[in-house]
Structure formats: structure tokens, C-alpha cells
Design a protein around this nucleic acid. Structure first.
Ligand code: MN
Ligand code: MN
Ligand code: MN
Ligand code: MN
Lengths: 217, 217
DNA sequence: TAGGGTATTTAGACAAGACTAACTTTTATG
DNA sequence: CATAAAAGTTAGTCTTGTCTAAATACCCTA
């Protein structure tokens, strides 16, 4: 039985080692993400290695074992199902769901998560467009196309975001955009790759950085 | 900010001091309920006294202060709303909801509980017939009439149960009875006050003890 | 009213996780 | 390649909450 903290470490390790960047993570990198000192992360890594969930060696980078990966995926499944519930059923906004799901994901009940999945009608993606792993830990690949890659004149629809920080999510909400918003690219400014886009009749100017954080279809 | 454990102690203290029995509780009595040693309960009582939530004196009985009572009621509100959600929305059975609600009640989010209350359409009673306190901590009085008091020939409807132990709830489920079941008392056996009752066409024999645990209207 | 039994409290230890400060290893740089 | 900076580790301490064992207080009854 994993503790809440052990679960959070595994989940973060999963995110750090599953991106395009790298398939392993340093102690300090992990510590940063969890807002903890490197000493604390080091301590936990040793414990998780003992439990066979993490590949760790002194002064080396860490990885998840198969067992660790499976545990992380179960947590991610719960996190994203709860986010979906908060967004779809309780009318939370895009940027509010993460914090609460961070707590709800640790509730221990097989039955609860099965019933929730069924109640939500087996959703495939969470409110940020991230895929929800199934009970066996299978997860659809993340969509990769960003707003930055859409040619001028083309219309597209938001299906996700690259990061779920409250700062970014609040900004995108303020722009009047959200999941499923339809966007047309009006002009790409060659100087800095910023975009003029059209959504629901309103014209908006966004930076290249912004456009790289928005996934579209 | 109260910890999960502090919350559980306050809630149990509320239950022990709000029944008809007594308005205070001994250290060992509290320890029993929380499945903890008297030494642990003693330790916590001193801490809660420091925080102004509990009235405690060495070798004396303990009580809740007004602040402690208010905190306990908020927790009970969350517990019973979650039980209602599990029962009504996710189709949990009568005897399964308590254990999961015991975890869910500790999720910290004002907004969550408001939205849940609204989603459930502001329920007044939980699946066990217990009243749900409102956001200000006001709680309707518990119904008092038990099955044991119903005269022979009279029909009634189950509105709650005296205790929510899994043992009792499973038994009542096995009998085919649940919240809102209609019951007619066919005969009261004078020897031991056991009852023959009729529900949905089936005849059932129940003990006096059982009948004292079922609240009806 | 003096024991004796029961309830309560204290003392000391342990586990999980966190922190700071000091130390070691690795890596990058001139 | 030498050395300084960065990254990682260790040691020791703290907090929360638990336990066991031993000491104390309370209370009931002979
Ligand atoms: Mn979490
Ligand atoms: Mn998400
Ligand atoms: Mn609880
Ligand atoms: Mn209940």
C-alpha cells in the first residue's frame, strides 16, 4: 500500500521520464517539481528503490520500474477522471480542477473509480485534453499538433494544452478560449511568429510561446 | 488548518457528546471509537485543547467547545453529502458508502462541497436517514420513532438506521430492506418482542434489537 | 476508610517525511 | 588537466501521530 506521498513522487517521476525530453530524472529536478528539498527527494528515492518501484543509483539519474510505471498510471487515471468529473459534472472551470484532483486522486477505492468512470461514460480525455489511461494502464498517445503549426487561413479546434499551470490556464480563459473553442488563424507575423487569430467573432493577438502551448486538431 | 486526524477526533467527539447518553466523553471511550490507544487519544486531546477546540482537564471528561463543535459539523456535512453522492449518483449500496466517505470528507475545497451540494439538489438526509448540516452548521433533528414502537397492523416506511456498522447494514440489505422500504407490522411476539413484518409481499421475522435500530415514519 | 480495580496520564520509542548544514561526487570551464 | 560550480548525499533535527510500559489518580466496595 503506497502512501499519498509515495504516489505523488511516482506520478511526478512518470511525467519527468515520459516526455520527449528525457527518460530519466535527476534528484534535484524531481525535488523542484514536488516543491521539496533535494535531501527529501533523495530520501524518498531510496525508499522507492527498496520497494522495487524506482531505478535509482547514487549520483545517477532515476527511472521508473515497470511496477512503478503501472502505479503511476493508476494515479494518473484517477487524477484525470476526477478532473473530468469536476469539469463536466460540477461545473468547475478549466484552471480549478487540477488542485482538487491532486487530493481526490489519493482516495483508496477500486469501486469508486470504476463507478466514476462509468458515470462519466468512459471518457478518453480530461479537460486539458490529456488522455485518460484505462483500468489496465493503457493510454492513448497525446495529440501533438500545436496552434503554431496551423497555416494561415486554416480553422482548428482546441483539444488540449501543453501545461496545466494556473497562470497559463487563467490567461487562456481570459482570452475567452477553452477546450473545444474553434480558432481561425488570420495572420502569422513573420517577425516574431506571433499570431492574429479569430474565435467566436473576436480577433485576438497571441505570442508564439502561447501558440506552442495549445494543442489543436 | 486541521489535519485529517484532528478532524476525525473532533467528529467522533461530536458523536459521543451529542447523543442522548451524555454530553461528555472519557479518554478511553474516545480511543475505543477511533481504534487507538488511550495514550494516543490523551495526546490528541491535549493538542486540541491548546487549539481551543476541546474542553479537557486531567482525569476529567472531555467536551467540544463551540469552535470544535462547528468544525465537527462541517466535517459531518461533508461526510453525509459524499455518502449521498455515492448512493444516489454512483449507485453504491447502503453499507458501502461510509468507508469511502470517511476518506472523501477530508478533501479540502470549499467550492467542491458547495458544488456537490448543489448538484445533489441540497439533500436534507443522507442514505442512512441522518440529517445533513447546512453550510452554517444547522442540522435538523434526527427522527426518533423506531420500528419497535409501531403498533401491530400499522404500515410505515424506513427513514434511517440507528447505527451504520457494516454488519448491521449488510444484514438489513440481506433481508431485502433499504431506505424507503414500506413495512407492515403483522405481529408482535409478546415473549421476546420480536416482530413478524411484511415488506413487498414477503414476510420477515426480526428481533427486538433489530427493530430498535430501524427508524421509521 | 482502606484497598483494589479501572481509567488516565506520562515517559520513551518508532515511523514517515520534511528541513538545514555540511560533505562528496560529478561536471563544466579555463 | 586542475579546479570551481553544480548536483547529490549524509547526518542530525523536527513534527505528527502512533505504540508499550510504567506510574498515578479516581472511585467503588468491603
Ligand atoms: Mn496528489
Ligand atoms: Mn489534466
Ligand atoms: Mn475520516
Ligand atoms: Mn451516514
Amino acid at each position: 500500500m503506497l502512501s499519498k506521498n509515495e504516489e505523488d513522487y511516482l506520478k511526478e517521476l512518470f511525467h519527468l521520464t515520459t516526455g520527449e525530453e528525457s527518460d530519466n530524472a535527476g534528484t534535484g529536478q524531481l525535488a523542484d517539481k514536488l516543491a521539496v528539498t533535494p535531501a527529501s527527494a533523495n530520501n524518498m528515492l531510496k525508499k522507492l528503490k527498496e520497494k522495487g518501484l524506482v531505478g535509482y543509483q547514487k549520483y545517477g539519474k532515476s527511472t521508473l520500474t515497470e511496477a512503478g510505471r503501472a502505479a503511476a498510471l493508476q494515479l494518473i487515471r484517477k487524477h484525470r477522471l476526477w478532473e473530468t468529473f469536476l469539469y463536466e459534472t460540477l461545473d468547475f472551470s478549466w484552471d480549478e480542477v487540477h488542485e482538487v484532483a491532486e487530493q481526490l486522486e489519493h482516495i483508496r477505492s477500486e469501486k469508486l473509480i470504476e463507478k466514476l468512470d462509468k458515470f462519466l461514460d468512459y471518457p478518453e480525455f480530461d479537460p486539458h485534453g490529456d488522455p485518460i489511461p484505462d483500468a489496465q494502464g493503457n493510454m492513448a498517445p497525446r495529440k501533438k499538433l500545436t496552434l503554431a503549426e496551423i497555416p494561415v487561413g486554416q480553422a482548428c479546434r482546441i483539444i488540449g494544452v501543453r501545461d496545466s499551470s494556473a497562470l497559463f490556464l487563467q490567461y487562456i480563459s481570459e482570452l475567452g478560449l477553452s477546450l473545444k473553442s474553434e480558432i481561425t488563424v488570420l495572420e502569422k507575423i513573420a517577425f516574431d511568429n506571433s499570431l492574429r487569430i479569430l474565435s467566436e467573432g473576436r480577433e485576438i493577438q497571441v505570442s508564439e510561446k502561447f501558440s506552442l502551448h495549445v494543442f489543436v486538431r
